[in-house]
């Protein structure tokens, strides 16, 4: 009784923290950092947990750039157990910084060689590849009497001035792979010159890689350079857009998985990595991506343009990882003034 007043602040403090720990987990809870699209997270989690009932996935999701920066920032005190669905160039960057634990998953033999790290044990494994494409709104194009572009080069034509939106490579993985492809295909000098010209036509650089094709889909802009899958899904929803694979070839990136060094749930993490290369997982990827790691999977999301695999440019993921900082610094210096707020 005498101390009853002491309990008041204590109770308040307890109330404050109660809901931070409201789920007393009996399951192993693993923290998975990802840049996958939101609509994929639910199905992936459900399917994995159905096969591994003792493990629970806690997603931490943001755009590729943010996730990458965050993982780097947390290098000394990692909070993630597993990376699942982050661009391979970022994952290679982590490998170079010694942030990953190698593990060759059971069933790694079943996936295409390009989708796995050649080292043993493998530091990472790929899931799928995605491209940066041009989304063109045919309705608005018809109204404005502007023809669809066929190549990257076309986009610098004066007719497109103010009609193009593309992602900011500093924050968007799609943005980075797009410019990395230009620089690799055209060569550095030509590539920057091309971007200088393109910059004149760009209305805004968005924070995320999905936004440009969405804006094109809504007719808010005529042309969006961006994440292929989002363009396809918008088209499925009824957007009057065409997905164009430019004639010079399309930049691409792979999404990869890896185990973060220092995880306290290594066992569960390895189970997850095993699952990410399974047939079931690949069939799931195939619903969202045209190109997946396992051969022979029917990967045909609706409204996806044909010939995507052929249009992929020759891409050096190692180079992308190594040169990332330098290229982004240069890009920021040249064009950042037009970035969308975020």
């Amino acid at each position: 009784m005498k101390h009853s007043r002491l309990w008041l602040p204590l109770a308040a403090a307890a109330a404050l923290f109660a809901f931070t720990a409201d789920a007393l987990a009996q399951k192993t809870r693993i923290t998975v950092y990802t840049a996958l699209e939101n609509d994929q997270l639910g199905p992936y989690k459900a399917a994995f947990e159905a096969d591994n009932p003792t493990i629970e996935i806690a997603w931490v999701r943001d755009s590729t750039g943010v996730m990458t920066a965050r993982l780097v920032a947390e290098k000394d005190n990692p909070r993630a157990d597993v990376i699942w669905g982050l661009s391979a160039s970022s994952v290679v960057l982590f490998e170079n910084m010694g942030m990953l634990t190698g593990y060759t998953p059971k069933g790694a033999d079943g996936i295409k060689p390009v989708f796995k790290d050649s080292k043993n044990p493998a530091m990472w494994t790929g899931m799928d590849a995605y491209l940066s494409v041009v989304c063109f709104n045919t309705t608005e194009g018809g109204k404005a009497k502007i023809d669809a572009p066929k190549s990257w080069k076309d986009l610098t034509k004066p007719a497109y001035k103010g009609h193009i939106v593309m992602p900011n490579p500093a924050s968007s993985g799609t943005g980075y792979l797009t410019i990395a492809a230009w620089l690799q295909v055209m060569g550095e000098a030509e590539g920057w010159k091309y971007m200088d010209a393109l910059h004149e036509n760009v209305a805004v650089y968005t924070h995320s890689g999905s936004a440009p094709c969405v804006q094109a889909a809504r007719g808010e802009r005529l042309i969006g350079i961006g994440f292929d899958m989002r363009g396809a899904s918008e088209k499925t929803k009824g957007a009057p857009i065409d997905l164009i694979l430019p004639s010079e070839g399309a930049g691409w990136e792979m999404e990869a998985s890896a185990i973060v060094k220092g995880t306290k749930n290594l066992d569960a993490a390895q189970k997850l990595i095993d699952w990410t290369v399974s047939r079931k997982a690949n069939e799931l990827y195939g619903k969202y991506y045209a190109i997946v790691a396992m051969p022979g999977i029917n990967a045909a999301p609706p409204n996806y343009p044909a010939g995507a695999e052929a249009a992929m440019v020759k891409n050096d993921l190692g180079w992308m990882a190594k040169e990332r900082d330098r290229i982004l610094a240069e890009w920021t210096k040249r064009y950042d003034g037009k970035s969308a707020p975020r």
């Binding site: 750039g65 943010v66 920066a69 965050r70 780097v72 920032a73 900011n168 500093a170 924050s171 209305a203 805004v204 924070h207 920021t332 003034g337 037009k338 970035s339 969308a340 707020p341 975020r342």
Partner: peptide, 20 residues
């Protein structure tokens, strides 16, 4: 709705969240 029109508040955000 800022589009290309940057203001202080969005700059902080872009610097910190967008580019860390």
């Amino acid at each position: 709705v800022g589009g290309r029109f940057n203001v202080l508040a969005t700059d902080i955000y872009k610097q910190v969240i967008g580019q860390q």
